[in-house]
Amino acid sequence: MSLDQNLRVDNQTDGEMKYGISCSTLLGLSPSADDVVRFAQEAERIGFHSIQLGDHVLGPEEFDASAYPAGVFDPRWPWYDPLVLLASIAGATKSVRLATGIAVLGYRPPIQQAQAVATLDFVSGGRFSYGVGIGWMREEFEALGVPFAQRGQRADEYLDVMKLLWSGSGQAFRGKFIDFTGGRLNPLPVQKPHPPIIVGGETPPALRRIAKYGDGFQINWKTFPEFKRILDELTTIMADSGRQLSDLYKQLAATNIELVQAEKDNLPNYEALGLDEIIFCPACYSVSEGFHTMRKFASEFF
Results as ranks from 00 to 15, higher is better:
242 G>D: 02
72 V>C: 03
162 M>G: 06
105 L>P: 05
134 I>C: 07
87 A>L: 00
246 S>P: 05
276 D>L: 06
104 V>A: 01
296 K>I: 04
199 V>K: 01
293 T>N: 06
100 T>F: 02
5 Q>G: 06
232 D>T: 15
158 Y>K: 00
251 Q>P: 02
117 V>H: 08
175 G>Y: 08
88 S>G: 12
192 K>C: 00
138 R>I: 03
252 L>I: 11
248 L>R: 09
31 P>Q: 04
283 A>H: 09
105 L>K: 06
98 L>R: 11
255 T>C: 06
113 Q>P: 00
180 F>A: 06
59 G>N: 14
215 D>V: 00
154 R>T: 08
265 D>H: 13
103 A>W: 11
9 V>P: 01
106 G>Q: 06
124 S>D: 07
239 A>W: 05
203 T>F: 04
125 G>M: 09
131 G>Q: 09
297 F>L: 04
212 K>D: 04
24 S>A: 12
284 C>P: 05
10 D>K: 04
101 G>I: 09
132 V>W: 07
31 P>K: 05
95 S>G: 09
8 R>W: 03
34 D>T: 15
93 T>S: 00
3 L>K: 03
19 Y>W: 09
196 P>W: 05
297 F>V: 02
279 I>S: 05
248 L>K: 08
214 G>M: 00
302 F>K: 14
40 A>R: 05
5 Q>A: 14
258 E>L: 08
209 R>F: 03
